[in-house]
Design a protein around this nucleic acid. Structure first.
Lengths: 332, 332
DNA sequence: TCACAAAGTGGTATCGGTTTCATATATATT
DNA sequence: AATATATATGAAACCGATACCACTTTGTGA
């Protein structure tokens, strides 16, 4: 069923039908005829055909590294909430942590003539930047700061600093970190930097031996805790983890080994995901406002789409420290 | 940049360009010219324009009740994995548990001329069925069984039965359930049925007072556990929860009240989500194969799109019982 | 050498919409 | 009454692609 066929059924011209769906001048009489015909036929105009002419797709492409991670899905939820209300649809690509797929996806989005792109970024190469520069539509990056692009990000360094500082204040003497790759400037480098800044302030040194680089998963947290605590020499008494998932995996290992949290080892994570509340020893963490980040990213892209302004903005959302049991200790 | 403009730059005809992108007869010479021009201009054909003519969008619409739930995001991940490999893109709608939005989304998908629809369903009304019937593209429903439609679902009743049976075998005498609305035939009704079947088999009665209807969340699990244990009369000694999230919330309440798991109260959930491994007392649950469900749903829709067969199929994936500490008890 | 199939080519109709245009009518303003 | 303005209308051009068509060139087998 197309507009011509439908217009005949409704007994009006093609133009009238188009006007009906686009708020043009139209007599009440024709409006009624068209509405009646819709009831009967169920006709709905093709967005694809429309967008050929109007060059507007009402589509926003979203690239994310892992759909089934709580942080990503909550960000996406925020994005969807805003864009859906404005009549935009989300076209989603899950890169499964494959940076090559990000590039491919951008190409795909260009073919689909999306009105904007939101990228939940991890690691950025020069290739990324050059491909992003060539996009002819607004781009917003979430979770990372990339010069020359609109970004919504968290205060990663500050959160890591505050958490580590808290553990040191509570009497920890030998801090260790299970981080993620420093190629990830936010979750990797910034959180490591915050950790180190706190150590520096407390005049505590950490050998490279107490620095682990894990993946973004519980299992990886477990494995790296094992590696950390299997080394010769004195054991860490405090463990900063780059994410709650990593922290929960590490705690699973500690529990297996009969190490008490927080008595023997303090632990903290970042994110305040659901798991933090439920670990056997409730996890101290920094709440990151994922959904809000998604909402703000969506607002940012809407504003760019509508006003086409080229001013680059970076929005940083602050964290909230959520102190639970895993870092509390009676100072001796 | 459109195909005409591009074809001039490449020094070939429009037809040649179209053939380049659609594997038609084309001399090596022209192929090379086109490739060179692509390098320079970055031209990519418009999918929208193409789909007007071909009537194929390579778009699959996915409707889900809550993006940030682990089960939904894992199903979606499975769907994406398969469809992405076949060149399909996902257009996503999060209904936020608003059944009206499911209907709206279907309308939206019709406008977008998606090639297929995958619906992660919860509650189905007659309106749902009639709108679904009117879709002119294949539909697959995940997580529910709906007569007349392709479905991929779990063995909800069996899982609930097996878990409850396990708790009764381990010596529980006074079982309670925190379920979800029976309007949800899978997570609500079927799991309640399984619970009751086990009770029946063990000749245990349960008053309506020991049946709570919660939402799909930790907080709701907490609230309903509170309600359950605040009632007058003997307390339950075993708690079947319709989801892991509900179970984890309930356990949080039990812990607050100083009730030990499993000594005072056995608890189990369904899903085997990440949280189950991490609760202070590791949670016995039934593993549901969410990602596999997504993969199978995607395969089903692909097959329907390609072969257009009208045979309705229902695929049921079985569960695996994962027995952890929360249901173990030394029989006295 | 000829017949016939396969490869290669560009013009044009077509897909399903929107928008411009020319024109007509109704209403409001001087 | 004359004029300006808002409302209403359908034909036709257009958006950016594909597909059919008629045609030419090349390759193959008898």
């Amino acid at each position: 069923m197309n507009i011509s066929e439908f217009s005949k059924i409704a007994g009006v011209s093609k133009s009238a039908v188009s006007r009906y769906f686009n708020d043009g001048y139209l007599s009440e009489e024709k409006r009624a005829q068209i509405e009646k015909a819709i009831q009967i036929t169920g006709y709905a105009p093709s967005i694809a055909a429309r967008s050929v002419k109007t060059r507007v797709t009402k589509l926003v492409g979203v690239i994310l590294p892992k759909l089934s991670s709580e942080s990503c899905s909550r960000i996406t939820e925020g994005i969807d909430e805003v864009l859906e209300a404005e009549g935009y649809k989300l076209i989603l690509v899950n890169t499964a942590n494959n940076p090559l797929k990000e590039i491919e996806s951008l190409e795909l989005f260009r073919q689909n003539r999306v009105d904007g792109v939101i990228l939940l970024g991890t690691v950025f190469t020069e290739l990324h930047k050059s491909v992003l520069k060539k996009m002819h539509v607004p781009v917003v990056i979430v979770g990372q700061r990339l010069k020359g692009f609109n970004c919504v990000c968290h205060n990663d360094e500050g959160a890591a600093y505050a958490l580590t500082r808290q553990m040191l204040k509570n009497g920890a003497k030998r801090p260790a970190i299970i981080g993620v790759t420093p190629e990830d400037k936010a979750a990797g480098k910034a959180r490591l930097d915050g950790f180190l800044r706190a150590l520096n302030e407390f005049h505590v040194a950490t050998g490279g031996k107490l620095t682990e680089i894990a993946q973004f998963s519980m299992d990886s947290g477990y494995d790296h805790a094992k590696h950390l605590f299997s080394q010769a020499g004195p054991k860490p008494d405090c463990l900063f983890c780059a994410t709650d998932d990593i922290a929960s995996g590490a705690m699973l290992y500690l529990r297996e080994q009969g190490l008490r949290v927080p008595e023997d080892v303090m632990v903290c994570g970042i994110g305040d995901t659901k798991i933090a509340k439920n670990t056997y020893c409730p996890l101290t963490t920094a709440r990151l406002h994922y959904k809000t980040a998604g909402i703000e990213a969506a607002n940012m892209i809407l504003s760019s789409i509508r006003h086409g302004d080229k001013i680059q903005r970076t929005l940083q959302l602050d964290y909230d420290i959520v102190e639970r049991e895993s870092t509390k200790r009676e100072t001796v």
